[in-house]
Each structure stands twice: as structure tokens, then as C-alpha cells.
Design a protein around this nucleic acid. Structure first.
Length: 591
RNA sequence: GCGCUCUUAGCUCAGCUGGACAGAGCAAUAGCCUUCUAAGCUACAGGUCAUAGGUUCGAAUCCUAUAGAGCGUGCCA
């Protein structure tokens, strides 16, 4: 039993007798262990005062998990929870009863999907969001696929091939091409060099195109993969645009049958930049769904637009039996969302589609924004941006802000900042816990007789012996706490062993799944960093209480008290590392 | 012009489905290390929650208008 379960339990209980909706619980606040707004809702419905409403439901609320219930002056109903609740709660975490059950819902999280025309730059800084989001959903029991969509069918690939070919000509001491659009940057010359090394004379204006396209693109995809690895991202699946456009006829057929595709002419706004404004094209009725106009699916030259290809791509996802499609895009794509959303939701029934746009992260130097341009190849690379402060801290920083935030990072301050920021605050807590457990494992208390097996610390071992499957998370960070799994559900730790602050900490731990649930609902990853900060804050505070009073330490003179406290602190460590794992960050043993 | 996002402490940002006196970090002030890591803790200080209305028992949160910032507004992707 944790807060998530308790709230569900109480809601069901209340709804049986009151028939009100939108019952809200606030866990672990300064007024009580759990508060609810039920009396506001009830008093409105019954046209009675909150106090009178309370009398009506009072007797139904008696429960083992609740010590006492009181009504606050302003009408909140406050619960104080019983030891039974805390006791079961702690045990449920120790025994991994707190993890979510596997469900079979297939979720596709598509993120990054930058064009394969150059390395990732810091404009892709928020790509870690999609990665962490996928991790949370996995943790919550979903069957998740991390996907990257490679736009290998558009004109930008031709531009890429031309840019490389131009460099190739240079190596042959021939005149460069005069291109309207071209990519510059070292990587272009690098690719040309590679091709030149293997075939210095083979390629010319008549035969270069296909080879230069595929070679360059594959080369760049490798760069991108490396860029992604540098921030800890690895996609499960890379889907190429050229492999999904075959679904266009089938997808169009569905939309046609719904009357959403027709032959016609575009309105003035769109066609003003168009080539031949009066031509008849294939159009999608996006205006039916709130878009300002219908949108083109074909170009004047008969080719399909990117939009058409995207429809095919999403249809492909649907054919692959995904029920929940999540796509993470840059803010510069949000004008595109309406039409895509309306097209995709019309392609299949029961498709849940979430499109998240992330506002750009601005990097500043000397108070001025660093510009980036892929064409000019002068962008601050994602790899470099991350390397500056390290992968883990980079992720933490990026994942600690809402996606909607127009976040500004000062490149000058960031290194200095790195020594004194929330990332280390959390890591320091974890390191201190490791230190406690180390001391404990070396102490006399660590005998086999206290209800759990002995806990030992092994700084050398990455993979300690005797790992039982379900507790590998703890062992990942070198402390051989795996034996804690032998603590039985009825392990009789005494809540009296804990100081009031430790009980507070325990209550925070019992909010973990509530936090996850909330992220699944809102897709707001930064709640994870907030949550783990809460734990760290409470932990550091307890640590200092121990400095003031030795009895408030984790390791005390009393063996029973110490053993009980070690269970709590090991559990804390477990939750912290679970949270950090979700963020894709390693939990440190030492700082 | 229109669409999306944002505006909370000097700075960077939190604020859970509308809920109790608006929070943290950095910066500033004053304390705390013979004792499990002081990258920490405690205290003090700092805010007309952009502005004006509205809905509600209750608004930083929802609605409308206004101001400012970012992005978009192609038969590019």
C-alpha cells in the first residue's frame, strides 16, 4: 500500500456512498498525511456545510490505514495515517511490490528524427526528453519502442549529395558546383574525402547521385548515432521514409473514404509562395479540424509532399499495432501539428496520439545567444555541449525543466555552475547513503540475526555474487544490498526506530508511484527531478540532525534501531536510483 | 494579420486534476565540521505570480482582453 493505492482505495470507497467526481487528494502536506477536497464537493451537492457533510460520510471512513480524520477550519478533510500503512508501504518497496504491472499496450515514442544532413547541434538538446519519457512509460509497465524517423526521401538529401559531390570535384581539382542551397561544415569535406579515397575517379556528374546520397546519409547517420550516444540515447528502431511511402495508397484510401481527400486548388495564403498557384492538386481537408486551410498532399510536379509521406509513416506505425503514438517535435513544427493530428487520428480507431513540442533551449555566451545553422556548419554540436558538463548532468539539467519553458543556458556559467547545482545535490545524497551503508556493513551490527541477511559493501565488485533477479537495480551501483530481498513482508521493523524526519522521508518514498502515474498522464518528465530533489532535501536534513544529535543518526548505539533504519535508507537509495535510471543517469557512489 | 508557447524573488526555474500562509537553486547576510562525506544543514532576507476584468466556496493555475518575449505561418522537411 502506498499513496497511489490508498487514494484509489479511498476514492472508490467514497464514490460508493457519495457519487461525487473530481475527488482530489493531496498527499503528505504540512497539514496531514493526506488531504481531500471531498467536503467542498459534497457540501455543494448537498447544499449543506462541509461540517454537516462530514457527519454523513464519517462512519464510512473508518479504516485500518487511517489513524484519525479531522476537518480543517476551511473545510479540508485531513487524514493521519496509521502505522499499518507505513509498515506495509515500506515493505512493499523493499519487496518490489511497488512496481507497476506489465500491461501489453504498445507505445511508440518517436523523438529526435532530425534530418540526416548533419551532426546534431545543441538545438537538439531536448532530445533527452523523448528518451526519458520512454523510460518512464517502460517503468509504468508499457511496451515501449524508441523510434527515429529518417527523412531520406526529401529534397534535402539531394542537396546533401550535391554538397558532397561539389567537394569531391574540388579534390579532383575540378571546378566546384554552383549550388543554390548547400551544406557546409567539416563533415561535408570529410565525406567527400572518404569517397575520394576509395574511388578517386569513378564518380562524375552522370553517375554520382545515388551513391553520394546513400553514402553521405549513412555516414551522417553514424555521426548522429554517436551524438545520441554521447547524451545516453539509443533508439530501438530506425525507420526510413523511403520504406514507408509505399503505404500512401492504402492510407489515402482510408482518408478518401471519409471524404477528407479531394482534388482542388489551394487558397491564396499557401499558394503565394507556391510555384504555380492555379494548379489542381491533391488536398487534405485539414480545415475541417481547425487548421486554417486545407493542405497539399501533392506538388505541382506530381511528387508527394512531406505531409503525404508522413501520413504513410504514421499509418505504418498503426499497422505495427501501436496503440499509443507519441511524437516529440521542435517548437518550429507546431504549425504542422493540427493537420498531422487530424490525418493520423482518422487513419485508425482507438489511436491515442500525443504530440509534444519542445521550446528551444537557448545557449548564451557573454550574454548573447549562440546561433546555430546546419547549412553553415557552425553550430555548437550537441556532443560538445554535453561534453562540457558531462552526460549525466546534461541530462539532469535538460530534464529538470518543463518542455514549455523557453530555457536559457549560459555556456560561460554552466561549468562553474556544475559544481553547485541540483544535480550534485541529488548525487550527494545518494553518495552519502552509500557511505552510511558502507559503514554499516563494516560494523558489528551487521550480523545475520536481525531479520535480514548481512549486508556487505563491495567497492570493487560491479557484479556481486548472489544476485537475485528482481533486485538487480540495487546491485547496479556496487553495493551488495541484494540480500535485502530476503527481508520478508512481515519483517518486523519498528516504526519507533525512526525519527519524525525519517517518517517524513518514508512518506515521500510512498509517493513515488503517484509521481510516475502523474507523469504518465501529463508526460511531464521534470516531475521526476522535482521528486528526487524532495527526497534529497529530506535526506540531507536528516543527516544534519544526526550531526546535532547522535541518536538521530542512521547508525546508532542500538542494534535494532540501526537495522531498521538501514532498511529505510537502503530503500531510499533504491528509489533514488530508480528515478535516476529513468532519467538515464547513473547514481553515484562517491563524489 | 493569424496560430502555438512563455511572462512567478536580482538571475535560472518549480508550483501535482483549481485548494490551506506562493517554493527551490544560484547570488546576498548570520550561524553549524574531535562524531555516518560541509558539493551539506539551520536561520534571516527577497515576489503587485506581466496588466485589467470574469467564472468559483476558493485562481499563479480556468475564460476574455491588453502588453511584452520566442517560434511558426511553403506545392521545404
Amino acid at each position: 500500500m502506498d499513496f497511489l493505492q490508498l487514494e484509489t482505495y479511498l476514492t472508490e470507497k467514497l464514490q460508493k456512498i457519495t457519487d461525487v467526481e473530481n475527488i482530489f487528494f493531496s498527499a503528505n502536506n504540512e497539514h496531514a498525511d493526506l488531504s481531500t477536497n471531498i467536503l467542498f464537493l459534497l457540501s455543494k451537492k448537498m447544499k449543506k456545510s462541509p461540517k454537516e457533510a462530514f457527519e454523513v460520510i464519517r462512519s464510512n471512513l473508518q479504516d485500518d490505514y487511517i489513524n484519525n480524520i479531522e476537518i480543517a477550519k476551511n473545510g479540508f478533510l485531513n487524514f493521519h495515517l496509521s502505522n499499518k500503512f507505513l509498515h506495509e508501504g515500506l515493505n512493499s518497496i523493499i519487496n518490489d511490490k511497488n512496481v507497476f504491472e506489465q500491461n501489453n499496450e504498445k507505445v511508440n515514442v518517436e523523438f529526435v528524427s532530425a534530418n540526416p544532413t548533419g551532426p546534431l547541434h545543441y538545438g537538439n538538446a531536448r532530445s533527452v526528453y523523448g528518451d526519458a519519457l520512454a523510460n518512464v512509460l517502460k517503468f509504468a509497465g508499457y511496451d515501449v519502442t524508441k523510434e527515429y524517423y529518417v527523412n531520406d526521401a526529401g529534397n534535402q538529401i539531394n542537396v546533401l549529395a550535391d554538397s558532397v559531390f561539389s567537394e569531391y570535384l574540388k579534390l579532383q581539382n575540378l571546378p566546384e558546383l554552383e549550388l543554390e542551397e548547400q551544406y557546409k561544415g567539416e563533415y561535408i569535406s570529410e565525406i567527400a574525402q572518404k569517397i575520394y579515397e576509395s574511388d578517386p575517379n569513378k564518380w562524375n556528374a552522370d553517375n554520382y547521385a545515388e551513391h553520394f546520397k546513400s553514402f553521405s546519409m549513412n555516414y551522417i547517420i553514424d555521426i548522429i548515432k554517436e551524438d545520441l550516444r554521447s547524451v545516453g540515447i539509443e533508439h530501438d528502431v530506425w525507420v526510413h521514409e523511403t520504406s514507408t511511402i509505399r503505404h500512401i495508397p492504402a492510407a489515402f484510401e482510408i482518408l478518401k473514404s471519409k471524404g477528407l481527400i479531394y482534388e482542388g486548388k489551394l487558397g491564396e495564403i499557401q499558394s503565394k509562395k507556391g510555384m504555380e498557384s492555379n494548379q489542381t492538386l491533391t488536398l487534405f481537408r485539414s480545415s475541417q479540424f481547425g487548421d486554417s486551410e486545407d493542405r497539399a498532399l501533392t506538388k505541382a510536379n506530381g511528387e508527394h509532399t512531406y505531409f503525404a509521406n508522413d501520413i504513410a509513416y504514421f499509418y505504418d506505425k498503426i499497422l505495427r499495432k501501436f496503440k499509443w503514438l507519441i511524437i516529440v517535435l521542435g517548437a518550429d513544427h507546431d504549425g504542422y501539428l493540427k493537420r498531422l493530428h487530424s490525418a493520423v487520428t482518422n487513419l485508425g480507431s482507438d489511436i491515442k496520439l500525443d504530440m509534444k513540442t519542445c521550446q528551444i533551449v537557448l545557449f548564451q555566451k557573454n550574454g548573447e545567444n549562440i546561433k546555430f545553422s546546419k547549412r553553415l556548419g557552425d553550430a555548437l554540436g550537441l556532443r560538445e555541449a554535453a561534453a562540457n558538463i558531462g552526460k549525466d548532468m546534461f541530462r539532469f539539467l535538460m530534464l529538470s525543466k518543463s518542455l514549455d519553458t523557453h530555457y536559457t543556458v549560459d555556456a560561460d556559467k554552466i561549468v562553474k555552475l556544475s559544481m553547485e547545482n541540483p544535480f550534485y545535490y541529488v548525487q550527494y545524497a545518494h553518495a552519502r547513503i552509500s557511505s552510511i551503508i558502507k559503514s554499516y556493513s563494516l560494523s558489528d551490527y551487521n550480523t545475520p540475526n536481525h531479520g535480514m541477511d548481512d549486508v556487505s559493501y563491495n567497492a570493487e565488485a560491479n557484479k556481486p555474487n548472489n544476485i537475485k533477479e528482481h533486485n538487480t537495480k540495487l546491485t547496479e551501483h556496487n553495493i551488495e544490498l541484494t540480500k535485502l530481498h530476503n527481508v520478508k513482508l512481515d519483517y518486523n521493523f519498528d516504526l519507533q526506530s525512526f525519527t519524525p524526519s525519517m517518517i517524513d522521508l518514508l512518506k515521500i518514498l510512498l509517493e513515488w508511484r503517484k509521481c510516475i502515474k502523474s507523469i504518465v498522464r501529463t508526460l511531464e518528465i521534470h516531475k521526476t527531478t522535482n521528486y528526487v530533489m524532495n527526497i534529497a532535501e529530506k535526506f540531507h536534513s536528516i543527516w544534519n540532525e544526526g550531526k546535532i544529535n547522535a541518536e538521530d543518526r542512521w547508525i546508532t548505539k542500538d542494534a535494532k534501531v540501526t537495522n531498521d533504519r538501514i532498511v529505510l535508507i537502503a530503500t531510499t537509495s533504491k528509489i533514488i536510483s530508480q528515478a535516476l535510471n529513468i532519467l538515464g543517469i547513473e547514481a553515484y557512489q562517491e563524489l
